[in-house]
Design a protein around this nucleic acid. Structure first.
Length: 585
DNA sequence: GCTACGAGCGCC
DNA sequence: AAAGGGCGCTCGTAGC
């Protein structure tokens, strides 16, 4: 199959742009225009000019490649009949770049992967300018050269590196683009109701802040502090929810001056409100919303949210009487089945460390936290009874399994135990628990040490690679000892080419390995579900939401997800599904 | 006016 | 020697 690189250029300004409007609405706004397309390909006369004169007939049925195909593919869709050609398949070189550990953007990818400098200046200069304003000028020629150059770089990335991307990753890249285009249906009434309620909370919070009346900025720490000084009371350093100092301050002064609570309510209600407004503004005529999702957004390979509507961090619980998740609903005649991989990370950690005892107990039917309690000699009992018989121990075991596997110390653990698992524990107590965990899990500790030792051997700007059990490798580049953000030097590396250095040690390397492996388990699940004809509307790390006909059951989905990959032989993989007429936690 | 960064907080 | 990790978004502020 022959390959062409395509790159559309479109008008944008401060209001009319993708980030504000989302791709779909941006490309269909009557104020906008797609004024140029550049196309290059082997044996093809390079083209750069208006869409209507492009050699579409020549590249019909070819493979079309673009840097951020989600955008260029949506251009093709938005232009509809005006392009009388379609690709046989498509490929995104931005996703390829991310997979390779390069920056995603074309400038960074060209620099690191092609050793070629390109400039985005011409495009920036086009901000706020219509093509008709610059046509027939010197700058227009520059812009054309720029657009053509982008297509050349894109094609070069494809030619040089596409074979470095395994088929499964290519499929995931395409799937991510497709799924986000498809989007989900939205319950508009619920959105409107939510916007009304949240607006009310926001307004009420404002009324509680004396500096708001004078036109002061609500969340300004400066304003807050000077108001405290005026009132003759001290102020806490941090206003955060989990600051003990702040909690104590609120206990003492909160009734007298309800400012901290009001600021917090304002911040939260406003952020949910913005989210809801974005959601509403992105509803398409058919009642569905497309969203952005970055394939390989994290260096571990996890997907990440994008363009103001991040579907991966919607609040689990209703706040202020508003449930954001429930605004996402199945299309008419369909239902959702929401399925989670059961404790995938701790299971993968146990597998990687060779903790067979723990995995055997899980396979026998113990919950992993029970299994941990058994193997640590903390408990003996029947399957599934720990939570009821000793809830305190159950929660502690859970906190230990989820909190201590990656090297957390006493301070962090006491914080995690309190904020995530409702266990009140001082640092001395936490320190004992940490020591106990490490002594009873020599394999985990050994795994940290092994990774750290190998990592450190690559210092002096070397590269350290962790071969995952799957088809992937984690790469840490330019390993050095230096101090960033601390007094003493630590071992640092880059996880994205040219990006800032990050501190690494055994616990983090272990975490990265586990997270990446769990991602690959999920990756196979995603493609397996689609292959079985169950389309996903979204996925969040270890959770998939499929939109299906009435005859599909949660058990069907569980079965498709509960598959141990060949390369993870011996690790029990399980899943739990529920069906719903809306997105629920 | 734009960009960068920290605080704070949402998720897994 | 000791160190949980991975993200994105909003707002406010500082610096260019």
């Amino acid at each position: 199959m022959r390959t062409a690189a395509i790159d559309f250029e479109s008008y944008y300004d401060g209001e009319l742009n993708i980030k504000e409007m989302g791709q779909w609405h941006y490309l269909r706004d009557p104020r906008g225009e797609i004024y140029m397309v550049s196309i290059v390909g082997e044996g093809l006369e390079p083209y750069c000019g208006p869409v209507k004169n492009a050699p579409w007939d020549r590249i019909n049925g070819w493979r079309w490649v673009a840097h951020n195909y989600s955008f260029d593919g949506e251009c093709v869709a938005a232009l509809g009949d005006r392009i009388k050609a379609r690709p046989a398949e498509y490929f995104c070189t931005a996703n390829l770049a991310a997979f390779l550990g390069s920056p995603r953007d074309l400038e960074g990818a060209s620099h690191h992967l092609l050793n070629k400098e390109i400039s985005k200046d011409p495009r920036k200069k086009m901000k706020g300018q219509k093509w008709s304003e610059v046509e027939n000028t010197e700058f227009a020629c520059e812009m054309q050269r720029y657009a053509l150059d982008d297509s050349y770089s894109c094609l070069e990335l494809y030619d040089k590196y596409q074979d470095k991307m395994p088929e499964i990753e290519k499929a995931l890249s395409r799937h991510t683009i497709q799924m986000a285009w498809r989007g989900f249906a939205v319950d508009r009434d619920r959105v409107d109701e939510g916007i009304r309620k949240l607006g009310q909370i926001k307004w009420e919070s404002e009324q509680k802040l004396p500096w708001f009346e004078d036109g002061g900025v609500v969340l300004s720490v400066k304003n807050f502090r000077s108001e405290c000084v005026k009132a003759g009371i001290p102020y806490p350093e941090s206003l955060s929810e989990d600051s003990e100092e702040c909690a104590a301050w609120e206990e003492k002064y909160g009734n007298q001056v309800p400012w901290v609570g009001a600021m917090r309510d304002w911040r939260k209600s406003n952020s949910y409100l913005v989210k809801m407004k974005v959601l509403r503004s992105r509803i398409r005529p058919d009642g569905t919303v497309a969203y952005g999702l970055k394939y390989f957004g994290a260096h571990t390979g996890r997907f990440s949210g994008d363009s103001r509507l991040n579907v991966q961090n919607l609040p689990r619980e209703p706040h202020y009487g508003v449930d954001l998740r429930s605004c996402i609903v199945p299309r008419p005649g369909k239902k959702f089945i929401i399925c989670d991989l059961s404790q995938i990370e701790p299971r993968v950690l146990a597998w990687l460390c060779g903790n067979h005892g723990l995995l055997d107990a899980v396979r026998e039917g113990y919950a992993i936290y029970e299994a941990f309690a058994i193997t640590a000699n903390l408990w003996k009992g029947e399957k599934g009874t720990l939570k009821k018989s000793n809830p305190k121990l159950y929660h502690l075991a859970k906190a230990m399994v989820l909190g201590l596997g990656y090297g957390a110390g006493a301070k962090k653990f006491s914080y995690l135990a309190k904020t995530s698992y409702g266990i009140d524990m001082d640092e001395t107590e936490a320190s004992r628990v940490v020591t106990m965990y490490r002594s009873k899990n020599p394999k985990v500790v050994g795994f940290w040490r092994q990774l750290e030792t190998a990592f450190r051997q690559s210092k002096d700007d070397g590269v350290y690679e962790i071969q995952l059990p799957s088809w992937r490798t984690l790469r840490y580049r330019n390993i050095r000892t230096q101090n960033i953000g601390r007094e003493k030097p630590g071992y640092t590396a880059q996880v994205v080419m040219g990006a800032p250095h990050i501190n690494f040690y055994g616990g983090i390397l272990c975490n990265n390995t586990v997270q990446a492996t769990a991602r690959d388990v999920m990756a196979e699940c995603i493609l397996r579900l689609e292959k079985a004809g169950l389309p996903l509307v979204l996925h969040v790390h270890d959770e998939a939401v499929v939109e299906v006909d009435a005859d599909v059951t949660p058990k069907d989905v569980e079965q498709l997800m509960s598959v141990t990959p060949d390369w993870l032989e011996g690790c029990p993989v399980a899943a739990e599904a529920v069906e719903a007429d809306k997105y629920v936690k």
